[in-house]
């Protein structure tokens, strides 16, 4: 293949930019996996579907509720579109996360983990297939209306950085800083850490464990919804809700959580960016077909060499 006429610096910058953007989304999703794992010690398989739901709810709000299709071409989208859609998606997915925990997982608090895992897969299938119903989102791919003007903010080494990319990279950072503050600087965060450290002791100390667990689910789901919103902004062509593409994205985010050290909030952030960059560098400089293979190869390597992840479990406080 003829690639000699490509400016290598431009290609590198473009790759890092995209890898970082997608890494931020992985990190947001991975946070949900890792927080739930920290507290309940099980993989919330349905979490990737909450992310999918976030993307599709964003579409639903933007295209159906606010009727913004084609607005960008005809006179521009209103400024409030982005915050309204984002908050709407986070709110709705937070509610769904709350319901999932209350209805599906709470009755199984004492059950073997395998049962909870299967329930999670059941919830995952349920969300996918309800989303595919004609009365919900329908079984066809759709595309997200442009909420932001196609304006270039800056050039990095000749690479165009549109507003969308700035938002896609910036928002996860802001959200993660907020989460850091919440977990390490507030009473709720303290309670979350306590429950994660030892549920029974925390309960004895007067922490309302059920409320903390619910809060964790709401928080994780809202973060996943934010990731879904950003994903829909960047990759406007949304596959139908039950498409395998979504599950693969969620899985890669889970790999990010494991690589970073599952149960560890900072590890999930680190793992997200690491997996995103690794994937995009692999696609750009190795074989583009093996996008998913790189990620799972890293997973198996990590499981073999350092099962506790990069930020080992004992080293850092976890949630």
């Amino acid at each position: 293949m003829d690639t000699q006429s490509i400016d290598p610096l431009m290609k590198l910058v473009q790759t890092l930019l995209d890898g970082f953007a997608v890494g931020g989304m992985y990190a947001l999703i991975a946070l949900g996996y890792t927080m739930v794992y920290g507290i309940l010690k099980f993989i919330n398989f349905a979490h990737s579907d909450v992310f999918t739901l976030g993307a599709w709810v964003s579409w639903g709000l933007a295209a159906r509720a606010l009727r913004l299709e084609g607005a960008a071409d005809a006179g521009g989208t209103p400024v409030w579109a982005v915050p309204v859609v984002l908050l709407g998606a986070m709110l709705l997915c937070g509610t769904v996360g709350f319901l999932i925990e209350r209805l599906a997982y709470k009755p199984l608090r004492a059950a073997p983990r395998l049962n909870v895992l299967i329930t999670a897969i059941g919830v995952s299938l349920l969300l996918q297939n309800v989303g595919q119903l004609r009365v919900v989102f329908g079984p066809y791919p759709k595309s997200m209306p442009a909420l932001l003007p196609d304006v270039t903010l800056l050039y990095v080494a000749g690479v165009r950085v549109p507003v969308v990319d700035v938002l896609v990279i910036g928002l996860p950072l802001v959200l993660m800083l907020g989460l850091e503050w919440l977990i390490f600087r507030t009473r709720v965060g303290l309670a979350m850490r306590a429950v994660s450290y030892n549920t029974q002791t925390a309960a004895l100390m007067g922490v309302n464990v059920n409320r903390v667990i619910s809060f964790t689910f709401v928080l994780g789901s809202a973060l996943a919804a934010a990731a879904g919103f950003l994903y829909a902004l960047k990759y406007v062509g949304l596959k139908q809700p039950a498409d395998t593409t979504w599950v693969m994205l969620g899985l890669k985010a889970f790999v990010a959580a494991v690589v970073g050290g599952i149960g560890n909030v900072r590890g999930a952030m680190l793992g997200g960016f690491a997996i995103g960059l690794l994937e995009f560098l692999g696609v750009a400089y190795l074989e583009p077909l093996y996008r998913d293979v790189y990620v799972f190869a890293v997973l198996i390597l990590v499981l073999l060499l350092r099962p506790a992840g990069i930020l080992g479990r004992a080293a850092v406080e976890k949630v």
């Binding site: 690639t3 490509i6 995209d18 990759y235 596959k239 498409d243 750009a284």
Partner: peptide
């Protein structure tokens, strides 16, 4: 490949 949604590496090339 199937399921890919990001084509920027290929398009950059």
């Amino acid at each position: 490949s199937d399921g890919d949604t990001d084509f920027s590496a290929q398009l950059t090339n």
